[in-house]
Design a protein around this nucleic acid. Structure first.
Lengths: 234, 234
DNA sequence: TACAAACTCTGTACAGCGTACAATTCTGGA
DNA sequence: TCCAGAATTGTACGCTGTACAGAGTTTGTA
């Protein structure tokens, strides 16, 4: 009955699975942020001794990497393979989906940035994005650079956004976020930061989906502006 | 002799200063990355009991915030106030200076992203960038959005870059970085990631200054492309 | 059917972490 | 001179990741 295909070795049956551990870890992460995720808390959540987890993951960093990559794998799989030729729409859908997935688990974002963006699912996402840009007609090298530019923008935005989301509570919607930020911005001294104070209404919306799309649009415009036949600019 | 202006209260003289503590902390950060920075290690570095530091900083997170903002304050102060009207050049200089400062202390980058981008020096930097864009002729709201877009790009790039820099050793130059990455990329399966494999030469240079400037150029192009008279695009 | 090898899990332990608390020492102002 | 207040230390608590030894369970093989 080798369910996984490779169960032909001695030893008692496993009481857990990687899946259960990752789910428990994500639950803790969502409930209390990155610092609520400890080997001991995960073990307690699963009713097991702390060191039992070392059967499944060699160390905490390894667990965290798996957790982060697992999360990246949850980005809608079909988001990047559109049938039509609306590549800007496809990139936009991908950017929205990736941001949404990450912001649904803000505690995972610092872990992602600390663990690196490698891992199979990260690679697969990069490949899919790159493939889309090439199929859109961009020269291969330009597409490669552009895909990194886009990833960079998404992760930078999400990082700044997640950094100010308190753990344990559901993310408020854009209007509430902006209103709260607007209130806080009322406290900044207009004599020392006149420009910032003058545009406080815009600054308050930095974390909104609308600003996110504004930036993405500028980005894609800029990518199209570049000399299409060359791989380097200026 | 009120040196700091506010020394008119009883108690023994302080054996340390915020400056010394921040310097020691940065030394440890540079030597061993974020996990080498502990209250106890900083105290040991200064030859003092761990809890002595609590006279100067209320908690470790407070210390880290101060450290990060102090680092941001080290970005060349004049970088953003050019006399000429070459605003793209000024933004580029700023982007290069900020990246250089952060990558000189890669261990600080995860701390920055975990602590948020507020703090006086972060605010001042944002104000200066915003001011530059407004003086460049961008409408106020567009300038505000653009400044966030630029910051987002810089921090995203730096985050991905710093995540793969090992702590304790000086950062190799671009050529060495790219060569090392190129070698590692040779190991990725071309059948599962054909596009990535095909552009491995470009991918290897993702962390280079050249790619950084390519992306920044696209970004600024895109900002200029947008409808200049309106504050929202779509 | 017995056994040895392989495997999973637990109990215990260690070094390190952030920091709270009480005691000690030092200082300037009244 | 004395006291109020500030700086520092020693001690301690609960937490962390994880190494190690042992016990229990399962398997293929003899």
């Amino acid at each position: 009955m080798g369910e996984t295909g490779r169960r032909a070795r001695p030893g008692p049956r496993r009481a857990l699975s990687e899946r259960e551990i990752l789910d428990a870890a994500m639950r803790l992460l969502d409930g209390g942020g990155a610092e609520a995720l400890s080997v001991r808390s995960v073990a307690a959540e699963l009713g097991v001794a702390p060191n039992a987890l070392y059967t499944y993951f060699a160390s905490k960093p390894v667990l965290v990497r798996a957790l982060v990559d697992d999360l990246l794998g949850q980005v809608g799989p079909g988001t990047l393979t559109p049938a039509d030729d609306d590549w800007r729409g496809a990139v936009t859908r991908f950017a929205l989906a990736l941001r949404e997935t990450l912001l649904a688990h803000p505690g995972a974002v610092p872990l992602l940035l600390g663990s690196g963006f490698d891992g199979p699912n990260a690679l697969a996402g990069g490949e899919a994005l790159l493939d889309l840009l090439v199929r859109a007609g961009l020269p291969q090298d330009t597409a490669s650079r552009a895909s990194y530019l886009i990833i960079t923008y998404i992760l930078g935005t999400v990082a700044l956004d997640a950094a100010e989301l308190p753990p344990g509570v559901p993310r408020p919607d854009d209007a509430a976020r902006t209103a709260a930020r607007r209130g806080r911005l009322a406290g900044i001294p207009a004599d020392r930061f006149p420009r910032t104070a003058a545009t406080a209404d815009v600054v308050a919306g930095y974390n909104s989906t609308e600003q996110y799309l504004w930036g993405l649009t500028r980005l894609l415009d800029g990518i199209l502006t570049g000399p299409p036949g060359r791989s380097t600019a200026s």
